[in-house]
Design a protein around this nucleic acid. Structure first.
Lengths: 208, 208
DNA sequence: ACAAAGTCTTGACAGTCGTCAAGGGATCGG
DNA sequence: CCGATCCCTTGACGACTGTCAAGACTTTGT
């Protein structure tokens, strides 16, 4: 039992490569159909392999999906780091942050709805919980890097905890995503305006 | 089984009554298993009928689920109205509102996670969109009645649109629900504290 | 009381699902 | 060059799904 994975031959690289390849096909399928309607056969159809190969690289469906969640996290968790590092003024940071929010909402809408789908599934399915809570915490850190930098550039301390700041911003983003996917044309821009108004409220009031 | 009074019922009433009865069984099942794992047979199992009866009262699965969404809405949309009407001070309103939020999060967690599940499904499934957007708008109105009354009692105008106010509060609630369902003991109380800090920020700054 | 209409159960259908076993090629060490 | 190992395909299994038809039971109208 123990050590079956270590016993694997030299091409551990190729093994991981295939797993990532399948993860990408899975993410694409999940982003399109959602968790409820995604089958392993459909995932394999969106790859260059047949449906049986999934069980060669993953023990079961959950292992694949959880692997996908972590694989996805690795790509998006640094999304706003450049914004944080490059900004020199509070207003510039806020503009760049809001613009990046709009950009990712428009460009990667399927991935975002998948994330919300999986996070909600974790409320029902124990097996998804650990992975989901881990990435959620990482996203909270990501947002907090933005907010605390914004506070620093403004020269005013924050009045919100990282948890609360993530909660309210995530609420606005999710709302905008729903609007965007259901036909509200200016959902993303409306969110940008809301973020512009909300962020200053996260700091102690500016001196009059 | 002793149907003493149904004998004289008008058929239309009984028909709607059965539909509501099935809707309640469906809501219970959906709240327990989530959308992805709920089958019509499981719904019928949680009722006193057999699985075939569903297609006697509903054309298909979607009609049942959409009926459930509307049925659910009718019950919860007035949840905070008593809070709004009975409060005479801004602080009293805020306390009562936060307490009600905590109460419903703890007592009706399965229903809330079902709502978030269905709302997310509407990002993938066209057929759910209309019903979900309708109830979402109604919830936004419900929240706005609280916020605007809070502003009125405070004697200070709001600085947020109804849409934004609902977005941020819903974000905090959803975050707390996830925390509560995944084992964070004080998730609900933490949310109450966050709401206490957030609500004043929705109004123009108080005079120093 | 009899017939019609309404209500519900049963059983089956055509699919789809996750999973796994058997086996065929491909690749590589010897 | 051969045999072992890895990679992948194929096909099948039992279970489950939404749906519907046939019929039994109940209630209603006359």
């Amino acid at each position: 039992m123990a050590g079956t994975k270590e016993a694997r031959r030299a091409p551990a690289d190729k093994y991981d490569e295939r797993r990532n390849q399948l993860a990408e096909s899975a993410l694409q399928t999940l982003g399109e159909l959602g968790y409820a309607r995604t089958s392993l056969r459909e995932i394999a159809n969106n790859s260059e392999f047949s449906h049986g190969v999934v069980h060669y690289y993953f023990a079961d469906k959950f292992e694949l999906i959880i692997y996908c969640v972590r694989y996805y996290k690795a790509r998006c968790v640094t999304r706003y780091d450049a914004v944080v590092e490059d900004s020199t003024t509070a207003e510039g940071l806020l503009d760049a942050f809001a613009a990046k929010l709009v950009e990712t909402l428009l460009d990667e809408a399927p991935m975002h709805r998948l994330w919300y789908d999986l996070r909600t599934q974790s409320m029902f399915e124990d097996k998804l919980r650990e992975a989901v809570l881990m990435i959620d915490a990482t996203l909270e850190d990501m947002i907090w890097r933005v907010v605390s930098k914004y506070a620093e550039l403004s020269g005013r301390p924050t009045v919100m905890t990282p948890h609360a700041a993530y909660g309210v911003l995530d609420g606005l983003f999710q709302q905008a995503l729903l609007g965007h996917l259901t036909g509200t044309a200016d959902a993303a821009e409306a969110m940008a305006a809301q973020v512009h108004e909300l962020m200053p409220l996260m700091l102690t009031p500016a001196p009059a």
